[in-house]
Amino acid sequence: MNDVLTLISFGPEGWGDEIVQGVLITVSLALATLPFGLVLGFLIALAKKSDEPSLRNAANIYTTIFRGLPELLTLFLVYYGVQIGIQEGLKLVGVEAYIEVNSFAAGMVALALVFSSYASEAFLSAFRGIPQGQYEGGYALGLSHRKTMGLVILPQLVRLSLPALGNLWLILLKETSLVSVVGLSDLVRQSGIAARVTKEPFLFFGVACLIYLVLAMISSAGLSRVEAWSKRGEVRR
């Protein structure tokens, strides 16, 4: 037992510092990805309900691609594809250089692409759950289309899409572990290094599992509070 406590302790003899650093990177990556994924997903949902066929087709192709590809392959395409693309572009102008993409940025982009493709469906379902009379009521009050969207539709959209978006956030939090394969020192990578060095894989991967469960429980509690707040104006029947 003392050996276990020593291994997970903080300081030169333990791996607690590295594990905490990995947790911070994992949470930072998820939080950095979330706003980009939400905004992009919302724009894709707007394109899907647009009257313009080209926008609808482009949005449908986008979601088909990134919902169909495994997340790990998407990460590899972004991480290695961007490097190759930049290097080939430089060669066209006569510059020979090796470019290495930041693994955090590549992970954020790849996860945002996948997250947005699923979030767009959550937003689209929420749009379909809002009666057409809500739009007509806003226009009848003299509100412009932009004000109707901002003051009437958007609050209802957030409330209706929150349960699905909450599930996507939990999935995103877990999928950050994929970025460890491109060298980002997240929780999984730090746990793997500690496991290899100490020959204690069960201990450190078990600790990683517990940390992910704690993060999920904290997220679930926070999402429950946000959902309750979003429903505060509903009339009880």
Score class of each variant (00 low, 15 high):
57 N>F: 14
42 F>N: 00
186 D>A: 06
3 D>A: 11
234 E>Q: 14
102 N>Y: 04
228 A>L: 08
64 T>H: 10
161 S>C: 06
1 M>V: 09
145 H>G: 03
178 L>M: 09
223 L>I: 15
165 L>W: 01
106 A>H: 01
156 Q>F: 08
178 L>G: 04
55 L>I: 01
227 E>M: 14
57 N>L: 15
64 T>E: 13
9 S>F: 01
227 E>L: 14
148 T>P: 01
51 D>G: 13
145 H>S: 14
120 S>D: 04
13 E>T: 13
146 R>L: 15
129 G>S: 12
225 R>Y: 12
168 L>Q: 13
135 Y>I: 14
224 S>H: 13
15 W>P: 02
185 S>T: 11
181 V>G: 00
211 I>M: 05
116 S>V: 09
171 I>H: 00
135 Y>C: 03
225 R>V: 12
116 S>N: 12
174 K>I: 06
119 A>Y: 01
82 V>H: 07
10 F>C: 06
14 G>Y: 11
189 R>P: 00
236 R>V: 13
26 T>C: 08
206 G>E: 05
50 S>G: 01
11 G>D: 06
189 R>V: 06
236 R>N: 12
24 L>T: 07
109 V>L: 15
26 T>Y: 01
170 L>G: 12
40 L>V: 08
166 G>S: 10
85 G>Q: 01
199 K>S: 12
39 V>E: 01
167 N>R: 10
161 S>T: 05
95 V>M: 14
75 L>S: 07
61 I>K: 08
144 S>C: 12
122 A>F: 08
22 G>F: 05
31 L>S: 04
229 W>Y: 12
206 G>T: 07
79 Y>I: 08
55 L>A: 07
28 S>P: 01
72 L>G: 08
63 T>A: 05
73 L>W: 11
129 G>C: 10
11 G>T: 12
42 F>E: 01
101 V>W: 09
3 D>K: 12
141 L>P: 08
106 A>R: 06
88 E>C: 07
128 R>Y: 04
58 A>K: 02
188 V>H: 01
144 S>M: 10
